[in-house]
Amino acid sequence: MEILEEITSYVDNELRDNYVFNRIKKLIEENSSVRAEYLRQSLVKNLLHQRFSNSKAPEYLVNNIRNQIFKPLPARKISEPFQFIQNFFKAKYAFALLVLVLFFILVSLPFAPDLSPESLIHQQKGDNNMLIQAHSNFHKIVEGELKVQFADKNPKSISNFFELNGVSYSTIIPECPSWEVIGAIISESDGEKLAHTLFRNEKNEILYLYQANENIIKRKLFVNISDDLIQYLSEGNLLKINETDCQILMMKCKNNFIAIASNSLTNNLENSFLAYMN
């Protein structure tokens, strides 16, 4: 190795032989030509490091790459009980079932629907129920099983993310002082993409907002709520459920049905969050 390259290694702290290291060190101290070479190389190295080592990739590029890589979740398989019901309808028992359904309709006709919150909550059953999905998804998020696909603190960027990635309906991303938006997830069922948004407050509590257009809910294919709940929410009512570890709210806002779950138990979400929904 010629001396100039040994100086290069010295500048980069890559000289492993102590004897060579000490020799170069001594030469730098005593020989002005060697010192000049050392200073020049150090100068270039330091200049490049200082000027360019902290350069950032442009934000649009980072977002673009994230959007291309972190695609929405793949379509969920229809659960077995639901598949059974589907098959049942197609099968030879369809007629018997039809008779049964008619019987229940006739029996229930004299009774007005019970729209008490307890009754409405009791009606929400099945893996495709929006309320049940909201509750389950929220726990997966808190436990770290479900991660955000797009992290951003700008509500408009979140809306754009939904729009650019195939969510077919207008989404509502409230801008409120005590809850900061932190990211978004898109799930997909039967080709329909659904929007999920996450917020965080200063206490590091999480608020999860799941919204689906009323037309999707009313089709009752892969996400639904009971007819009574549709009616209850469409009349402008708010359904509130207090679980031990979270509170869940359901409402209708513009054309979307919205389920909200949060581990902020003391927070009055009606004032701190829902007031900013419109």
Partner: peptide, 12 residues
């Protein structure tokens, strides 16, 4: 509330 269908955890 019963838990919802599993998402694709592998992809997650």
């Amino acid at each position: 509330l019963r838990s919802a269908s599993n998402t694709d955890t592998k992809l997650q």
